[in-house]
């Protein structure tokens, strides 16, 4: 067991967990942050994507000990401080980028990471950035549209 202390969405959190417990389980079960989803448990679908010290990772592959002292951002941390949706979240809603919604949290974080990097949001660049996140519902076009628009707004 380790005493895991980390910053989740700007707040300090801690838990006593086995060092190899998946970050995904720590978030969902210890902290009740169930927004992060599990679609495969082996790093293939991206449903569990979170930002770990700014990097996009699959929380199902990250052992707790590796997140010691890290800054983690989950879908619950994307909204504005007043709880209203961020520009990216609003655009996902307006453009029809979420259907069943199970890929959405991971997709949002992959998109957020792309926006944070500040690259030019071309169709190809966005698709490249989202390639690790599967969506079975949308066919991706609406997601790509929403991300391009959000990235443009962020660069303004």
């Amino acid at each position: 067991m380790i005493e895991l202390v980390l910053d989740v969405n700007g707040a300090e959190r801690s838990a006593r967990v086995p060092p190899l417990r998946r970050l995904l389980d720590v978030l969902r079960e210890e902290f009740g942050l169930t927004g992060t989803k599990e679609g495969c448990g082996e790093g293939e679908c991206g449903a569990c994507s979170v930002l770990l010290d700014g990097e996009l990772v699959n929380a199902c592959l990250v052992p707790a000990c590796q997140a010691q002292g890290a800054k983690v951002v989950t879908v619950e941390g994307l909204a504005r401080p007043d709880g209203t949706p961020s520009t990216l979240q609003r655009l996902f809603l307006e453009r029809g980028a979420a259907q069943c919604g199970i890929c959405t949290p991971g997709m949002l974080l992959a998109a957020q990471r792309f926006i944070d990097l500040g690259a030019t949001p071309t169709d190809e660049a966005v698709r490249e950035a989202l390639a690790g996140n599967l969506c079975r519902c949308t066919g991706y076009s609406k997601i790509v549209e929403a991300v391009i628009e959000a990235a443009r707004e962020a660069r303004r």
Binding site: L33, T34, G35, V75, A79, P85, L93, E94, A98, G101
Partner: peptide
Amino acid sequence: QSPPRLDGLDKLLGRARYLDD
């Protein structure tokens, strides 16, 4: 018309509760 889907906000904010949640 295409108003925002009714379940959209919960899904985008990570509040929608699926069975495993």
